[in-house]
Structures are given as C-alpha cells and as structure tokens.
C-alpha cells in the first residue's frame, strides 16, 4: 500500500466513515497563533464578479463554518422592505406581490448605506432607497390582425423588473446612478396582466441582514466541502480500469497509453462510493477527504463581488470581538 502523506484525513469506507487511526482530532492540540499563521493558507481557484471558488487550508472547522454562517446571515444588503400599494387590479394578491418585490435583488452597494434606526418613521437619504412601479396593461391596436400571441395582442402584459423606477431622495442623485441601485437584472418577471389590469406602487428599500429575512442575504449560495482524495492501492488495467473510471466523476480517473488507470484530479469528485459495488475493484482504492482543507464556493446575488462579501464577513466577526472586548474592559 502506498504511504500516504501526513495530513489529517477521514476515510470513506464501504459502510462507515473512519478517522485516521493516529488522528485524535484537531481539538487535541494547544492553541498557538504563530503555528496557526504558519499552517494557514488561502488559494484562490476561480473568481469573477458573481462567483468564486477558493481554498482555506489548515484552518479549524469552527472558523470555516463561522465565515460561512456570517456570509449567509450577517453580511448586509439592500432589499425592498415596504410596499405602498395605491392600485393593484392584477390577479396577484397585494401581499404576494409585495413579497415577490422584496425578493428582487438590488444592485445598491450596502456599504454606502446605514441601517435604519429601529423606531424611525421616515427614512433618510442615508438609509433608504425609494422606487416606484406604475404600469398598465392595454390592448395592442397595432399588432398583427391574425395573431393570437399575448405579446401581439396586449401591451405590458408581462411586468419585468426593468419597469421599476428609482426616485432619488435628498442628495442621492449626485452620489448614486440609477444603474447602480436598481434591480440586478432587467428581466425578472414580477407579474402577468391582461387589459384593464394596473399596478401603481411605491417601494421602499432598506438595509438589512439575512438573519432577519433571506432576501437580505448577499449570497445565492455560500458553502464549503472538504477536499476529496483518491488513492489507488494496486495497478488497475483493461476492462477493470474503464469500470473504475465510470465509478467516479468525469475527469477524476485517467487512463494512460497502456490502459492503466491513474488518479488525474480528485478535487471535483462527488465522493460517491460506487467502487464498493464491484468486488473486483473495491480493494483497489482508498477514498478519503482532507480534514483541514476547505473548498469554499461563494455565489453573489449581484450587489457585491464574492471576494468582497467574504472580507465583509470576516470583518463582522472581527468587529464583534472588538465590541465585546471593549465592553469587558470597560466594566472591569
């Protein structure tokens, strides 16, 4: 059996998940900040304005989980919170419509706004964005005569997020641009209407956090998984090699020119235990995961790029510690 490198692992066996025999868990070692900084590494794998994949290596699961939880529920974003309905003759009920509007992600950068104080009746230019949605469905007089398609027969039969208009309050127009505060996409369907149906609404967006309502969460998903590892314990070739290949996600197992199987890249393996279904190859592989190698996937909803969201999340934890420390120091 090939000697495995020194890394904390969990083994995925046929009927159980087993910890490495000499591994007493990371809970056993003493805390040492210097040692932590020495071991801790970050590798960015993929990054653009909406999606990001990065690795946190050599970190405690408690920290990784804290960062994930913070991104989901404590990093703020702007969302529509109040809807004043002046007229709604469409078939969607007022409350359902208001809920739909709340879920539309806004591009407004939450770092440029403040939280609205709890007892404030009126919003200010620093904590509120105001929008309106006024639209009416009519018969289309100029459409082709012989068509029965809704888009030819009616005007405004589908209401999209592009119809939401921003109304700057106070000095907002000089600080923000309409394109930077409105909905992230123009083609989010809000409602469908027929001639005579009409919407006239005033929308108020405020800053909030995901703990209060999921619509305030700045991420579509933020998750982590442990790095998978596949080790071959003996040579596998011929039909067994192709069978082995089919047991893993595409690209995990490669075949060389002699038809011998080798592990190409286990990173994107789904960690299914399909190999254990076949007696002829179940002895040929060790499946494991590296216990301190976290692969993060962060998908932004559109207001902030994912790398900014992660930094904001860590900053929130840091500031939490700071305020708590200040409080402890002040009363003792």
């Amino acid at each position: 059996m090939p000697k495995l490198e020194e890394k904390p692992r969990v083994f995925l066996e046929e009927f159980r998940v087993k910890n490495a025999p000499d591994d007493y868990g990371m809970a056993d070692e003493k805390w040492n900040f210097k040692k932590f900084t020495k071991k801790f590494r970050i590798v960015i794998v993929r990054m653009d304005n909406t999606e990001m994949e990065f690795d946190l290596i050599g970190i405690q699961p408690a920290f990784a989980n804290a960062f994930r939880r913070l991104m989901l529920s404590e990093v703020p974003s702007m969302a529509i919170e109040k809807v004043m309905i002046k007229n709604n003759t469409s078939i969607i009920q007022d409350e359902v419509l208001a809920h739909r509007l709340g879920l539309i992600p806004l591009k407004a950068d939450p770092r440029l706004f403040e939280f609205r104080p709890e007892n404030a009746e009126e919003g200010t230019e620093f904590d509120t964005l105001e929008f309106s949605l006024k639209i009416k469905c009519t018969n289309n007089k100029y459409g082709p005569k012989d068509s029965f398609r809704a888009e030819d027969l009616y005007e405004n039969h589908s209401v999209y997020s592009s119809s939401i208009k921003w109304h700057p309050i106070g000095n907002q127009a000089s600080i923000h641009k309409e394109a930077d505060v409105g909905p992230v996409d123009d083609d989010i369907l809000i409602s469908k209407m027929r001639p005579g149906h009409e919407l006239d609404m005033h929308l108020v967006a405020v800053k909030g956090i995901g703990k209060d309502h999921a619509k305030f969460s700045p991420v579509a998903t933020a998750s982590y998984r442990l790095l998978p590892e596949v080790t071959l314990t003996r040579e596998v070739d011929g039909s067994e090699a192709t069978l082995l290949q089919s047991c893993f996600s595409p690209g995990v197992i490669g075949l060389d020119s002699d038809g011998k199987a080798f592990v190409r890249d286990a990173r994107y393996d789904s960690c299914s235990r399909n190999t254990y279904r076949y007696d002829c190859i179940k002895d040929a592989v060790i499946l494991s995961r590296i216990r301190d190698h976290f692969i993060f996937n962060v998908e932004s909803v559109g207001a902030m790029p994912p790398n900014v969201i992660f930094v904001e999340a860590v900053k929130i934890l840091r500031d939490k510690c700071k305020t708590l420390l200040d409080e402890l120091n002040s009363f003792s």
């Binding site: 960062f67 860590v314 510690c321």
Partner: peptide, 14 residues
C-alpha cells in the same frame, strides 16, 4: 483577542 487576531490575519492573507 485571539479570535480577532485570526480574523485580521485571514483578511490580510485573503
């Protein structure tokens, strides 16, 4: 204090 230091180190490194 240590948790705060961990956060600061993570931000810098990231």
């Amino acid at each position: 204090t240590d948790l705060q230091k961990v956060c600061e180190h993570t931000i810098d490194l990231f």
